[in-house]
Nucleic acid binder design. Structure first.
Length: 222
DNA sequence: GCGACAG
DNA sequence: ATCTTGTCGC
């Protein structure tokens, strides 16, 4: 895949935050995804083991979720985990994986936040600027913001709000299970992002593309 | 100053 | 994220 907006990774935390403030102005989070036109969806995830990060991108058909391409990439883990700066820890290895990708997914699902981030530029938004394709953030736990209690039934949702701003949605992808926190990455909006994630979660709490990517990323070569 | 804190 | 067996429940 062609990548744009690439930048140096050798940044101090302070510089990384400054870059986020600069890049956030480029993020488009109010554009509906053309759901009827989605044919390929990619799941993206990174696993860490012994100081090594392995990224996995699994592209599946939609609907159907049949894998059509899987790419892996490995690199030494460069940055310790710092809340709010996840993209700087996983970005380098993801960049390598994206370059190997031959197919062109209509949407990318990330394990982590989109604009539901203190500076509105979580990993899904940041990587979206590179990919220049719709991206969606799918977090398993909250980074920031609050939401009202939501019904137990699958499909129930509640707006995720931070500083009076709606930044995403708490979405129940499985009845009686903890909700997922969905937010637009880039070139997407909240309603269509939530709808696509729901359609990508036919059986488990995690969207199918992300589950597959998670499994692939956790498979380290001996 | 005191908490909160994706993966 | 990762360390890890069995176990409760549909």
């Amino acid at each position: 895949m062609q990548l744009h907006h690439r930048h140096d990774w050798k940044l101090t935390p302070t510089e990384a935050i400054a870059l986020q403030h600069q890049l956030r102005t480029e993020v488009v989070s109010d554009r509906p995804i053309d759901l009827d036109g989605v044919q390929l969806v990619a799941g993206v995830d990174v696993s860490v083991k012994n100081e090594q990060s392995q990224a996995a991108i699994v592209v599946v058909t939609f609907p159907g979720f049949l894998p059509v391409e899987t790419v892996l990439a490995q690199r030494p883990t460069p940055f310790p985990y710092v809340p709010g700066l996840l993209s700087f820890r996983e970005g380098p290895v993801l960049e390598e994986a994206f370059e190997k990708l031959k197919s062109e997914p209509d949407v990318f699902l990330f394990d982590g936040m989109g604009i539901a981030h203190p500076r509105r530029i979580g990993i899904a938004s940041h990587m979206g600027l590179w990919l220049q394709r719709p991206t969606i953030g799918c977090g398993k736990t909250l980074l920031c913001g609050r939401y009202r209690d939501l019904a137990e039934e699958k499909g129930s949702a509640a707006p995720l709000i931070d500083r009076k701003e709606t930044i995403g949605v708490a979405l129940r992808t499985r009845t009686a299970k903890n909700p997922m926190f969905i937010s637009p990455g880039h070139l997407a909006d909240i309603p269509t992002a939530a709808e696509l994630v729901l359609r990508c979660s036919p059986k488990y709490r995690l969207p199918e593309p992300i589950r597959l990517a998670h499994n692939a990323a956790g498979q380290f070569s001996p």
